[in-house]
């Protein structure tokens, strides 16, 4: 386990390095210019733009800029966001926490809901419920999340006026902070949950249906196992690997997976910052977001691998021969 941990860690470094370099080059290949974005339409003195360019180091050759940037990254300095007037690291970490506050509960509910739908599909006495849930999953998977978001806003915020239409906290409210967060989370959280539950359910249904046909299920039944125990102890663990892999994938992409939802509900997260940074050509922030998102994928892949090994002894290295 420890060796695998080090192997993974050593591999993560070149992967992240490639992510950093590629994105460094890519954002600069895109049309547009940060200096123009900062100055905007205002009239400025002669030579001000060049002065600003030199001050930010953008007048140097691109490979020099890259080396300087890499040197800073290795020291934990992701640079300074000229658009937001604050260091990139604290900026994106703050926004990332907001995004996680939206995504993590949603992904957890979605995972549980997805497995539950898979469980229902095994029951021979719940055929109708199963077909209904399968239909709903297909709907949840195919409906555009921005459309669903708008419908939710029209229904619950505009017509019924039950829930706030946007943001994460109200500016003025009598509610305690947690309830306020919950009220704001309800609609975007629902949209996230529905979408990811549909993804998990599709995989869970297939893999649980396969696990339940295993011969070891017959052995478990022959012992006198109850249906409940059969599912939790035998069916679910044996069908869990594909489910864990899709859940891990969802979590890995969680930081950048909510761009549309955050836009629709004006959730102050990483997705919203990402959109704003593209428009501002805010290179350091964009690079920081890419690096963080890449690191999240690497970490979630590692966690997923560890969970595989916990679930399935056949995946462990150097298994003991008896």
């Amino acid at each position: 386990m420890l060796r695998l941990f080090w192997n993974r860690l050593v591999w993560a470094i070149p992967v992240l390095l490639v992510i950093v370099v590629l994105n460094f080059v890519l954002v600069r290949l895109a049309p547009g210019d940060p200096i123009t974005s900062i100055i905007g339409e205002y009239p400025t003195p002669e030579g001000y733009a060049e002065q600003l360019r030199a001050q930010m180091g953008l007048d140097r050759p691109i490979h020099e800029q890259l080396l300087i940037y890499l040197g800073h990254v290795f020291q934990g300095d992701l640079g300074y966001s000229f658009a937001n007037r604050q260091p990139v690291l604290s900026l994106i970490l703050g926004k990332a926490l907001n995004t996680l506050a939206l995504m993590v509960p949603g992904l957890i509910f979605a995972s549980l809901l997805g497995i539950l739908i898979g469980r229902v599909s095994l029951s021979t006495s719940a055929r109708f419920l199963d077909s209904t849930l399968t239909g709903l999953s297909l709907f949840g998977y195919s409906v555009p999340i921005f459309w669903l978001g708008q419908v939710l806003i029209i229904l619950f915020a505009v017509e019924l006026q039950w829930l706030p239409a946007q943001g994460m906290f109200a500016l003025q409210t009598d509610l305690p902070p947690f309830l306020d967060y919950l009220a704001h989370w309800a609609m975007p959280g629902f949209a996230v949950t529905i979408f990811y539950a549909a993804i998990v359910a599709r995989v869970a249904r297939a893999s649980l249906k396969e696990a339940v046909t295993g011969d070891y299920i017959v052995t478990a039944l022959a012992k006198g196992t109850s249906q409940r125990r059969l599912f939790w102890r035998h069916v679910l663990p044996n069908g869990l690997v594909p489910i864990v892999s899709v859940i891990g994938y969802n979590f890995g992409l969680a930081l950048t997976g909510a761009i549309l939802v955050e836009s629709v509900f004006a959730w102050p997260g990483l997705g919203a910052l990402f959109m704003a940074s593209i428009i501002a050509r805010d290179y350091p922030t964009l690079q920081g977001i890419f690096l963080l998102a890449g690191a999240a994928v690497v970490v979630s892949n590692f966690v997923t691998d560890v969970v595989y090994e916990i679930i399935d002894p056949r995946m462990r290295n150097g298994s003991r021969g008896a």
Binding site: G214, D215, Y216, V218, T219, A220, L221, A222, K223, G224, H234, P237, N238, I311, D312, P313, R314
Partner: peptide, 19 residues
Amino acid sequence: RGRTFAMVFQDPLSYLNPL
């Protein structure tokens, strides 16, 4: 099942829970 009848099967690998 269990207390009255218990069963031994043909293919011992597939009939044991691998996990």
